[in-house]
Write a protein that binds this DNA or RNA. Sequence first.
DNA 1: AGGGTGACGATCA
DNA 2: ATGATCGCCACCC
Length: 123
Amino acid sequence: MAKAKLKPEASDQAKNMFDVILAVVRRVPHGKVSTYGDIAYAAGFPGSARQVAWALNQGRIGIPWQRIVGAGGKILLPAERGFEQRMRLQQEGVAFIGLKVNMKVHQAALSQIKAHKKKRAVR
DNA sequence: AGGGTGACGATCA
DNA sequence: ATGATCGCCACCC
């Protein structure tokens, strides 16, 4: 499939979604992972897990796409890509249990990836 | 305008 | 645990 290149003419709505999603993905720390559903939720689009996958496909350059796995910690990328994802994660120190990531230890907390909530100034 | 697709996810048999 | 179904939503033809 190799297709799709987000056209710049995309609707503002979608453009914003794409942008916010990638911003959240970027917040997932090294050695941690998150799920499509959690990213969607944290980005403000609960239920739109598919759009997260879509966004990752468009912008996988520059973002830690490998840190996003399916619910339960299962890698959903097909064949080779899935293999690469697993390899990259293990390289970051992420442990697997069978075919899934050990979410107990590596799942990033929602509060950590959610957009900044201006919690009182750091001061 | 209509229908199919997809790196999803929850539910049910 | 495995497989089918449905809901979700942006994209593409």
